[in-house]
Design a protein around this nucleic acid. Structure first.
Lengths: 201, 201
DNA sequence: ATAACAACCGACCAGTCAGTCTGTCGTATC
DNA sequence: GATACGACAGACTGACTGGTCGGTTGTTAT
C-alpha cells in the first residue's frame, strides 16, 4: 500500500499536468510528450497508468469535476443565505473565476465546454462524460430553484426543471462569448439578466 | 481572367472541403492531407493558394459566414412579418438546422463556436475573426429588437443593446449543450424561454 | 515562335504523433 | 537469498504533421 500511494501521486501528477495543458491549448494541440515532460514522468510510466490519451482526457474530466464541485461546496454553498442567493452567488463565483483568468492573461473558458465542442462529435466516451457533468450541474441549479420556489423567493409560475438547463446554457454561452471576445462582460450581463428574470416574473 | 476563374474555383473547392472536415472533426484533428485529398488537389496547389493551415481556417470562417448570412437573408429575413416574428423565425430556423443534423447522425454545433473554443486561446487571428462574426450576429439581433421595440412589440423597459448578446449567448450555450447531449431539445427550450421573456416583460 | 507568368504537381523534409517494448529498480514475501 | 511484482525508465516504431521546393503545364501577350 505504501507503493500504491506513490503510484497514486504519480497518477495525479500526470492528470494535473494534462488538465493544465488541455485547458490552455486544447486536447489535440497537446502532445503526450508535453504532458509527461511537465509531469516529470516517462512514457513508460504514463502508459503504466493510462491505456490511452483518451483515457487520460476522461480522467482529467473526472478530476476537474471533483475539484470544481468541492470548490463550489466550500466556497459558495456553505455560505449562509437563501436558495436564490446561493444560486446567484454560484453564478457570481464563476464570473469571478473568469475575471481572474482575464487578469492573468487570457480567458480559457469552461473546461467541460471546451471538451464538449472539441471532442464530443468524435469521442463518445468523452461526450458521455461531459454530458454527465452538465447533467449534474443542471441538477444542482434545479435543486436551488426548487428550494427558492418553495420558499416563495421566485414565482410559482417558474418551472425549475425547464429553467435549469436554460440557465446552464446561458452560462456556457456567456463563457464562450467572453473567451472569443478575450474579455469578460457577457457573463456579468447574463447574470444580471437571470437575476432580473427570476426576481420579477 | 479565365485562369483566375479556375483558380478561384480551386480555392473554393479547398475551402469547402476544409470547412466540412473542420466542422465534422475539428481543426487540429483534421490533417492537411485529408483536406487536399477530399478537395482533389495537391499539396503544392494548396500552398499556392494559402500560406498556412491557419490562413485556411480563417478563409473557411469567412466562407461560412458569407454562406450562412445569405442563407438567413433569403430563407428567414425575406419572409414577411414584424421584427419580433423575424427574430423568432431566425431562432427557429437555426433550431431546425440542429434537428436536421441530428437526424443525419450527429449534432455538429456552431461552426464559429467550435472554432472559438478550440482555437481562440491559441490563435489570435482566428479569435479576432470569430469575434467579428459574433459581433455581427449580435448586431443583427439588436437591430431586430430595436425595431420590435419601436413598433411596441416588446416592452419599452427592454434594452436591445444589452439583450442582444444575452440572446446570442443563450443560443450558443444551447447548441453546445445539445451537441454534448447528442440530442436537440435545449435549443427549443431556450427559444421558448426567450419568446416568453420578450412577450411578457 | 517565344517569353512570361499564373496555376499546379508531387516528391521530399524535419519534426511530432500516439503507442509499444524490453528491461530495470526497489520492496515485500517466503 | 530467491522470487515475485508493482512502479517506472526510455529507446524505438511507423504513421502522420505542416510546410518546402524544383519543376511542369497551359494560356496569354508580344
Amino acid at each position: 500500500m505504501a507503493l500504491s500511494e506513490k503510484a497514486q501521486a504519480t497518477r495525479e501528477k500526470i492528470i494535473a499536468a494534462a488538465a493544465e495543458l488541455f485547458y490552455r491549448n486544447g486536447y489535440h494541440a497537446t502532445g503526450l510528450d508535453k504532458v509527461i515532460r511537465r509531469a516529470g514522468v516517462t512514457k513508460g510510466n504514463f502508459y503504466y497508468h493510462f491505456p490511452s490519451k483518451e483515457a487520460l482526457a476522461i480522467a482529467t474530466l473526472d478530476w476537474q469535476y471533483e475539484r470544481f464541485s468541492t470548490e463550489i461546496r466550500e466556497q459558495v454553498l456553505s455560505r449562509r443565505g437563501n436558495a436564490l442567493e446561493a444560486l446567484l452567488n454560484l453564478l457570481n463565483y464563476m464570473a469571478g473565476r473568469q475575471k481572474k483568468q482575464h487578469e492573468e492573461g487570457q480567458i480559457l473558458g469552461c473546461y467541460f465546454g471546451n471538451f464538449a465542442l472539441e471532442l464530443s462529435s468524435v469521442s463518445p466516451a468523452v461526450r458521455d462524460k461531459v454530458n454527465a457533468v452538465f447533467a449534474s450541474y443542471a441538477e444542482l441549479i434545479e435543486k436551488l430553484l426548487r428550494h427558492a420556489r418553495k420558499k416563495g423567493l421566485i414565482s410559482e409560475s417558474l418551472d425549475p426543471g425547464q429553467l435549469a438547463p436554460v440557465i446552464l446554457g446561458q452560462i456556457e454561452g456567456a463563457i464562450l462569448l467572453d473567451k472569443a471576445r478575450h474579455q469578460p462582460g457577457n457573463f456579468d450581463q447574463s447574470i444580471e439578466f437571470i437575476r432580473n428574470y427570476l426576481e420579477s416574473s
